[in-house]
Amino acid sequence: MLGTTALAGSSALPPLPRLPMSKVADNMERPLVLIVDDDEDVRSALEELLLSVGIDARCFGSTQELLHADLPERPGCLILDVRMPGASGLDLQQHLASNGNTRPIIFLTGHGDIAMTVQAMKAGAVDFLTKPVRDQTLLDVVTTGIEKDIAQRTAARLVKQHVDRYSKLTPREREVLREVAKGRLNKQIAFDLGISEITVKLHRGNVTKKMQATSIGQLIRIWELLPAEIRGERSP
């Protein structure tokens, strides 16, 4: 009964027809796992295992190969061997992080040493597995990674939506929104901004409408999801 329970999310996906990459790429929401291992046998075994449960995978022989590849914007995760010729898995992890690439990383290693594991996990690795690895363990971790990426991507999309809406606010509306988010009363806001309470109420109504919030509570949550640099805008 391998994989049927733990990988419920994945097995819910219809079995993939063996289609050329170009056609599969149309479905931008299908997860894609990137495998980087210098050992070809391990690489292809990993790929085949993932394909057997309907997860697309692409293999790379080195970190350089991956960095030079043209990758589709699809959710998924990275399976990295720690020790490879040239830049190691840990090097790649750093490199991706510094470029804002948030793809979750699963490390595979022939010889897990504690220092390395700690370093990888601190840098945000999903997991650190030692070779040889059990298929179920790996698939579980891969699923976790994919789910995490999907969640991240959803969150990122949401934030982007909010930012877009926020950008449509007038400067005055933004000021009112910031003050509302601080929990200040209309009266106080009107006093601080030197406008009438009625005007504040009007702005507030516009902001709620433009940000597509249904209540003040939701508006405040949306505000909190906005990137820090926006929230800190024009702050004293």
Binding site: D41, S44, A45, E48, L49, P132, D135
Partner: peptide, 12 residues
């Protein structure tokens, strides 16, 4: 490395 590959292939 090859042991890993063996196990993965057989499990697959």
């Amino acid at each position: 490395q090859p042991i890993t590959a063996v196990l993965l292939n057989i499990q697959t």
